[in-house]
Amino acid sequence: MSQAELTAVPAPRTAPRALWAFGILRSELATTLRRWRTLALLGVLAAVPVLIGIAVRIETGDGSRGGPDGGGGPAFLSQVTNNGLFLVFAALSATLPVFLPMAVGVVAGDSVAGEASGGTLRYLLVAPAGRTRLLLVKYASVLVFCLVATLVVAASALAAGALLFPVGEVTTISGTRIGFGEGLLRAGLIAVAVAVSLTGFAALGLFISTLTDSGVAAMAATVGVLITAQILDTMPQLEGIHPYLFPHYWMSFTDLLRDPVHWDELTRNLGLQALYAAVFGSAAWARFTTKDVSV
């Protein structure tokens, strides 16, 4: 029930309008991804696995084992020297808590508020797309960014891992072996799982973005919520609310490396992200479709 829909658009024009929405999605994606800020974020994300790889390589150059004894640091770090594919997993578990959601927070927080503060939002609203559709397009482009950002980390880690370390059969964390092909498949699944983990947070960022007309405020608030949720998630006294915090099941992607795969937490993560997307997506819709856009 957007304003555009209220102004009685005849039914036969639905198909061209859907096409038009696709067009707006494409242009939205192009503006988002071509922005210097976005490119810089992606560049930083791509650099993280390379840095980890080089650090591990230097550290173990003299033949000593990777990582401190008894683990520590990001998961999988100790296996990186034996199999470059593990750099993908190590890089994703290193970037998922901070870097990836921060990048998503910046893009999501900026998506509506940035247009509002730049004064371009009202021109977008003049187009006969309707606010609901525009919001969906905004959310879709943030989701695409989630996937792109994750894939950038994974791809850069795969390239760095293959260059710096040997690759071959993968030992799952259960101690069983799988072929390199299946290992790659699991790495792909893990990248998708990580991207999906960010969808709930993306919806939250979009909602915050509709609340204010200042892009910077929206980005800061979104990242602030992220940090708060993560701090709450580490407090043992608040155990009762942990399963409902969006970052709680983020590390569940590591369950894809077990043999057989342990689905419990992965599905719980999926449900939780869907819930956040539904609640904050509809909140963003309620706010955005009723908002006064004067600037």
Binding site: A75, S93, S174, G175, M251, H262
Partner: peptide
């Protein structure tokens, strides 16, 4: 017997 840890496993 496997003990499932966060990002790790003991088998």
């Amino acid at each position: 017997l496997s003990i499932l840890g966060e990002g790790s496993e003991y088998s």
